[in-house]
Design a protein around this nucleic acid. Structure first.
Lengths: 141, 141
DNA sequence: CTGACTGCAAAGTGTTTGCACGCAC
DNA sequence: GTGCGTGCAAACACTTTGCAGTCAG
């Protein structure tokens, strides 16, 4: 599997470095993580890795389609691996909770945007903000 | 109409200042604008207004429901007035173009999220990234 | 008069860049 | 050996904050 990664990188003229691999493994094991969180995880395994290396590698890995990012807060973006099926995110403004929803749920919308606007939506990057059931209940009891 | 604004502000213990009004008018006249662009527009009318005043007022105006913001790029948020009907945005990654789409277009999605997840979606904040018709044509001629 | 609001400057957060060295291939 | 990748430090873009003075109500 490491060889597979090496091949994918080589295909675009990139090399496989320990840092690169650590960043990818960190994203895979964390689920949804900001660059900062990825750095922290990477440093558990190798303490001398630099922030800029994390940013640069997230960029490369995203270009290769191995990770993706979405904006789950007004602050930092969060990265996740692409091994799982395509999904988008619901974020509750009240409790900050995040739920992943399969891309199928948005198919009517994407179809409509394609028909009416010729627009090809990138659902994997989509984040829908709002209020989750639990928080709605608390606010209007 | 200025009096109406004054009343809305007073209702929450806020005051009407020239800066406040200029920020609101700037957002209304610009359509979609980042805080920086709002500042530039405000300064056309009064050169001594400060950045932090713009940020603080955008926050107040948003709390009052007079303006809204969405994230149309990975960088700064963009503000728009709420006078027009509720809409969300399509952003083309290629040409950076922005199209506003009426909230109705997403009604099937919001309905589904409500039914299946009890989630109340805030469509006005939604941004869908993807590729517009024109750019898709250029990439696959 | 009172405290909400402002301008200013400084600090904060998240991200990017230039450079010299080092390592993958 | 070649040049991609790294660490480091400094720069960058955007936003927030503390403070003292000011002005709206």
């Amino acid at each position: 599997m490491t060889d597979d990664l090496r091949r994918r990188l080589a295909g675009r003229g990139y090399r496989l470095t320990p840092q690169r691999e650590l960043v990818l493994r960190a994203v895979e094991s964390l689920g949804h993580a900001t660059p900062d969180e990825v750095l922290a995880e990477v440093r558990q395994h190798s303490s001398a890795v630099n922030v800029s290396t994390v940013y640069r590698n997230l960029e490369v890995l995203e270009e290769l389609g191995l990770v993706r990012h979405a904006h789950l807060s007004d602050r930092a973006p969060t990265y996740h691996s692409v091994t799982d099926h395509e999904h988008f995110h619901l974020v509750c403004r009240s409790c900050r909770g995040v739920v992943s929803v399969g891309a199928e749920a948005a198919s009517v919308l994407t179809g409509r945007l394609a028909d009416e606007h010729g627009f090809t939506a990138d659902i994997g990057h989509l984040t829908v903000f709002g209020t989750c059931a639990e928080c709605a209940r608390e606010e209007n009891p």
